Amino acid sequence: MDTHHPGVFLTEDRLAIREMAREFATTEVLPLANELDPVHGEIPMALREKMAELGFFGILVPEEYGGLGLGLSEYAIVVEELARAWMSVASLIARGQQFTAGFGPEQRARYLPAMARGEFLSAFALSEAEAGSDVANLSCRAVPDGDGWRITGQKMWCTFADGSDYLQVFARTAPVDPAHRSRGVTCFLMPKERGTLPEGVTGTPVRKIGYHGWTTWELSFADAWADEVVGELGKGFRVAMGDLDTARIHTAARAIGLARGALEDSITYAGQRVQFGRPIGENQGIRFKIADMAAQIEASRALMYQVCTAVDTGRPSPVEASMVKLVASEMAERVTSEGLQIHGGAGYTTDFPVERYWRDARLTKIFEGTSEIQMRIISDALLGRPDART
C-alpha cells in the first residue's frame, strides 16, 4: 500500500531511489526471507554482493570516499523498503556506514571506501550482561601490552560477530570514576577474517526468538589483542553515543517497514480468506483494523520524514530522534500484532510472513535504547532531570 505522492519530501530523485529499493526488496530479499527465516538460515553472501553493487552500504558515505553521499532521508527510505521484506537485511546495511563517529581522518581514508563497497563491515561489541541500557557500567577491561592492548571480559548481543570484517570493542582502560562513570572506556577496532572470530575470542550463539538471518553472539575475550583505538583513549562512550540519531532513525524506519509488511499482507489475506460465504475483508471489524493500521503507519512515517529533514539540514535533535524511535517501534508491535490477528490461526504459523514481522517488531522496542530509555530522554528534555535521591 502506498499513499505517498511526489512532494516536498518525496522528490523525484527520492521516489526513484525508493522504487529501486522496493523492486530489490520484493524480488531478491522477500523470497529469501520467506525461505530462510523459518529455518534460521543465514543471509547469503550473494545477496550481500548485490546490495553492495547497488550502493546500499555507502548511502551515508561521502562521495570522496566512494559512497553515494546522500542523507538520512534517502537512508531511511531504503531501510523501510528492505525491512518490509526482512528486517535483518535492513539492519545489515548499517554495518557499512554507521558506528564510524569516532574515526579520525586517516581511519576514514583507509576504511570508508571499503565500507562503501561492502568489504569492511562491522560488529558492535558494547553490551554486557550487567550493562544493557546502563552502557557506562562496563566490566570488560583492556590493559596495555607493548604497542597494543589485551582485552579480557564478556560481551553480549554482538550480532554479526562472525560474518563481519572487524569488531568494535568497548573496554575499560581506566578505573571507574563514580562521579563520571562513562569516562575511562575506550573503543578498539579489531580487524578479523570474515567468517571467524578474532584470536583470543570465543563465542556462544544467543538463542533468540527472531532477528534471524545472522547470528547474535555472547563473546568471551581472553587476552585478545587490539592495537587500534577509535576516537580518544578513555572517551569511547562518546564514540558509542556518536551515531545515536542515525541509529534511532534507522530503527524507526525498520519498524515502519515491518508494520507495512503486516498491513499489506493483511489486505491481501482479507481479500482471499472466505468465511461465512464472503471474504473477511467485507467485515467492518476487519476493515476498521486495516484502516487503523494504515493511519498509524502514516503518522509514524510522517514524523520520521520530519526528523530526517531536520538532521539533513543541520538541525540534529536527539530528542526528536528518540521520539520517532519510540513512536514507530511501539506502533510496529501493535500493527504487526493486529496483522497476525487478521490472519487468525494461519498467522500463528511460519507459513505466512506476518509472524516474522511480529517477532522482529518486538525487538525494535528493545535495541538502540528501550522504549523506557526513550521516554526518559524525552521527559528529561521536557521536565529537566529529576533531583538525585540519597
Score class of each variant (00 low, 15 high):
G257A: 12
T216E: 14
A224S: 10
P178A: 09
L197A: 08
L197T: 11
E232R: 15
W217R: 08
T246V: 13
A240L: 05
A174S: 14
V229E: 02
T246W: 03
I209M: 04
P178W: 06
V206W: 06
A253Y: 09
T173W: 07
P178H: 10
E199Y: 00
I249Q: 13
M190A: 04
A252W: 04
G195L: 09
G236M: 09
A255S: 15
P198E: 09
W214S: 14
K192S: 02
T251N: 15
L244E: 13
C187Y: 00
V230W: 01
R248N: 11
F237S: 13
R181P: 12
D243P: 08
P191Y: 07
I256S: 05
Y211Q: 11
A252H: 01
I256A: 08
K192W: 02
G231Y: 10
E218Y: 08
A255E: 05
I256E: 02
A222R: 13
A174Y: 02
A226M: 01
R238N: 08
L233S: 02
D243C: 10
P205G: 08
G210Q: 09
C187L: 00
V239W: 07
R260V: 02
K192Q: 13
T216H: 05
V230H: 04
L197Y: 09
P175K: 06
A179Y: 04
H250A: 14
M241E: 14
H180D: 14
D245Q: 01
H250P: 07
E218C: 04
R194V: 14
D245L: 00
V201C: 00
V201S: 06
S182D: 14
R260P: 01
E228M: 08
R181L: 15
I209S: 13
H180A: 13
K192P: 03
D177R: 06
F188C: 05
A179N: 12
T215A: 00
T215Q: 07
A226C: 05
C187Q: 12
A252L: 03
T251V: 15
P175E: 12
I256D: 01
D227Q: 10
D245M: 04
W225K: 07
G195Y: 07
V239G: 02
T216N: 10
T202C: 05
T215I: 15
R238I: 11
D223Y: 03
C187A: 15
E199P: 04
P178S: 05
C187D: 10
E232D: 15
L197V: 08
G195M: 04
A247H: 01
T204Q: 11
T216Q: 14
R254C: 14
T186K: 03
E199F: 00
R194G: 02
R254F: 00
D177W: 03
D223V: 07
T173V: 14
M190G: 02
A253M: 08
G213R: 06
V229C: 02
D245I: 13
V185T: 13
R248P: 04
G242W: 06
A255I: 11
V185S: 05
R207G: 00
R248G: 07
R238F: 10
E218S: 11
T204Y: 00
S220F: 04
R183S: 13
P191L: 05
P198W: 05
A247I: 15
G213T: 11
V201P: 06
R254P: 01
M190K: 06
H250W: 14
T186N: 11
F237N: 09
P198I: 04
T204K: 07
K208V: 12
L233I: 15
E228K: 10
D177L: 05
R254V: 15
G231C: 10
